[in-house]
Design a binder for these strands. Structure first.
Lengths: 127, 127
DNA sequence: TGAATATATGAGCATATGTTCATATTGTCA
DNA sequence: TGACAATATGAACATATGCTCATATATTCA
């Protein structure tokens, strides 16, 4: 009796993954959804760029003007290092590009979609 | 000598916030950028919704069809609980809405911007 | 060449975040 | 009403993430 109860409990906690209620819906969606896991991963990585306050403010700033690391740090009242780390992330995501002039590295937006994306975000938040 | 060296070191590490190189640019950007901190915060929160693989797949699924918690869990091969937690987050961000029919709760997309945003992400990643 | 400056980067730390587990809640049906 | 089923939720845990510090690299200029 105790064993049975234990097994029941265990089974319940394992298949908390319940039975599919609408098999047709699940199959339909499964077909139409992106099948490539790495695609979904890359897509999430892309959106992550905008999902942090610091990176977002950097992008919002670069939307207005090309800026160097020093200026961005001053603008946001933050460490060089923190800005540089975030710019590296944005750079790897191909969202910003850089040009070097002497010691100074100037960053600009590198993607036509960035502005459009920020605009959509504006609309949503302003509702 | 040792004290001086220490002080120098300390000063350096404190004002790693370097002098502004382009004061005009910084001032200009500062004026044109959103001044409301909570706005930027909300904007980042909005983008966070898309910045996690699980939430992203949920949104991609709901883009195709209304679904209940069970079906989403089955589709993604995940726990009820995990899905439910994420749906709560999406719900608080007003990105999904729900209707209850008996025991079953059906979720749909609640924002016209979601599809547009996903489309932009598609374009970027596919480049 | 040596000092100073702008930027980059690795390590460490503190916090944030996603998942799981256990349990609660709500609704159906015998 | 009682058993079951679908969903919700709080706590705990493991991992991810952003910032700081120290240091490295690269460039200018005296």
């Amino acid at each position: 009796m105790l064993i049975y109860s234990y097994l029941m409990k265990n089974t319940n906690s394992i298949d908390h993954i319940c039975k599919v209620i609408h098999k047709d819906v699940v199959n339909n969606v499964k077909q139409q959804m992106p099948h490539d896991d790495s695609f979904v991963y890359d897509l999430a990585e892309f959106f992550k760029a905008f999902a942090d306050g610091t990176r977002l403010r950097i992008l919002l700033a670069l939307r207005i003007s090309e800026m160097c690391v020093c200026d961005i740090a001053a603008l946001l009242g933050m460490n060089h290092s923190a800005i540089s780390h975030q710019l590296r992330i944005l750079s790897h995501l191909r969202l910003v590009k850089q040009r070097k002039y002497g010691k100074v590295v100037y960053y600009t937006l590198n993607d036509v979609h960035v502005k459009a994306l920020l605009d959509l975000g504006f609309e949503h938040v302003n509702e």
